[in-house]
């Protein structure tokens, strides 16, 4: 037992990582050859591994078909993390509002009784209760505008609602991205479309390209731009003269 105490003091052991460190080892005499050095290192290593095994094999174990299984203690050596700790997700606009108003979440049944058909039906999805699409006739109202298709309007309204929700979702994800708490499977990508309300930046045309265009325009006349009015500062077209060689006999 005394020996055990001694080794514990000499060696620093981290069973969680199967790690041992002997800070007091010193080569007694400078090893003369490579073999001697290796031998001494391996014997020293054997002692250390034995020291870890002493604690490891004395841990409570459970027998399995493949051999004894021990529960390792958590590692004591502190090593840096690979990635930052997961950050908490900021509340969405609705969650903020609900908190302010004291609105609590409640469970809803998946299946609801439908009075019109006298059946239990799904709340959402295919064959659901109060499905707008099930209504074949919409009664006219006094407030209806003539020439407007109520069915098309219903569809349009639905599309607008979905679009609005999608916009809200994007906004919430943007705030989450700012806090560094975007869900791992979501990416926010910048698309080529401009932000509404801003002008698209016109592509800059270079000096060379502009000159080429001027030259091209000139050659498209029969005289090759010979009699065209020149603008002040305009240079003669690059490619002048004949394009074909005609052999006269």
């Amino acid at each position: 037992m005394d020996m055990d105490m001694e080794t514990d003091q000499i060696y620093q052991i981290d069973v969680g990582n199967l790690l041992a460190f002997n800070p007091n080892h010193r080569f007694s005499s400078a090893p003369s050859s490579r073999e001697e050095l290796v031998k001494e290192c391996v014997t020293e290593g054997t002692k250390l591994v034995q020291a870890i095994a002493d604690t490891l094999f004395n841990l409570p174990s459970t027998e399995t078909n493949d051999g004894p299984l021990v529960q390792l203690p958590p590692p004591t050596t502190k090593l840096p993390r690979e990635k930052h700790l997961p950050r908490p997700k900021p509340p969405t606009k609705w969650e903020e509002f609900a908190l302010k108003k004291g609105i609590q979440k409640r469970k809803k049944d998946k299946i609801v009784y439908d009075e019109t058909t006298d059946k239990f039906k799904r709340r959402h999805g295919y064959d659901r209760v109060n499905d707008d699409n099930d209504i074949p006739i919409i009664e006219a109202k006094a407030s209806d505008e003539p020439g407007e298709d109520p069915f098309a309007k219903r569809l349009d309204d639905k599309k607008k609602r979905v679009g609005k929700q999608e916009k809200n979702r994007l906004e919430n994800l943007k705030t989450a991205a700012k806090a560094g708490a975007l869900p791992s499977h979501v990416q926010l990508a910048v698309t080529g479309l401009p932000i509404s309300g801003t002008k698209t930046q016109p592509k800059k045309i270079g000096k060379e390209a502009l000159g080429d265009v001027a030259g091209l325009a000139a050659t498209s006349t029969a005289s090759g731009g010979k009699f065209d009015k020149k603008l002040p500062g305009e240079k003669p077209p690059k490619k002048q003269g004949k394009h074909h060689k005609v052999i006269h006999r």
Binding site: C41, L56, L69, V70
Partner: peptide, 18 residues
Amino acid sequence: EVVDNLNLTGLDRAYICS
């Protein structure tokens, strides 16, 4: 990897640094 459970028969290697 950091593990909770270890099979003692699977111990078969050691790295020695001096």
